[in-house]
Amino acid sequence: MEKVIDIGQYIEVAVDWLTENFHGLFDLIKNVGNGFIEGFEWLLMGIPFFVVIGLLTILAYLKVGKGTAIFTLAGMVLIYLMGFWEETMETLALIFVSTIIALVQAIPIGIWAAKKPGVNRVVRPILDFMQTMPAFVYLIPAVLFFSIGKLPGAFATVIFALPPAVRLTTLGIQQVPPDLVEAARAFGATNRQILTKVELPLATNTILAGVNQTIMMALSMVVIAGMIAAGGLGEKVLEGINNLNIGLGFESGFAVVILAIVLDRITQALGQKNENSPLSKLRMKFKKN
């Protein structure tokens, strides 16, 4: 069928206009962002691998428990032995940076949307759009604005990973019982005090569930971003596909799965109050003394 309406051309015009008129700004973002990502990479790779594995294992043990700690230890050692340590750290750095940038925007927007129904009405369809648009599509403007590399990878990742954190922040704030907010108001709390002393503490668990979701989505997008030379495990996966190298594809894919499980278990535990985790037990002991 012939094309009757051509929305694509307008998008093209808009993107062209942006790249032409704001390339200075984009360059600035690119330089700052790349510095940020590379700094993180440098940090993660500067630390010896066994220290990173040790820290992750201890964190898993304290927050979740023995099983997860053993899995973390075994999985990360396996990644190292498969020779993917450097790529994994690159991926991890990109996830961290993207998640932080996403959260810095998502949480305030989520709070704003929870407070103002009008804002919520505007934000929700935008989030729907962001989540349902095929992830690959974000790579195109990312490349146009920033060419290829790590920063455009982070850019696409931020867009893709942002929505769950916004949604769950809004949900968490909306779920705070109205009588608690009223009580705070009756004691003369300002809006800011209500937010920091009542709403955010009560919404923490839900918000952390959103953070977990954002991290997981960032991981999946960071792998896809390997297509635009964002580096890390994604590039290895792509290499495997391009060369029809089943062994390499499977190995690097397996490393992604291990990283995903480790990140998921640890960040999920941050949101839940696990009374049986070794850290809580330690804390209880400390309190009693």
């Binding site: 009588d179 009223e182 009580a183 108001r185 009756a186 004691f187 003369g188």
Partner: peptide, 14 residues
């Protein structure tokens, strides 16, 4: 006024 002159007690404790 709310902070110094009057305090409230609620049905559902809050």
């Amino acid at each position: 006024t709310r902070r110094t002159e009057m305090s409230m007690v609620f049905q559902k404790f809050a």
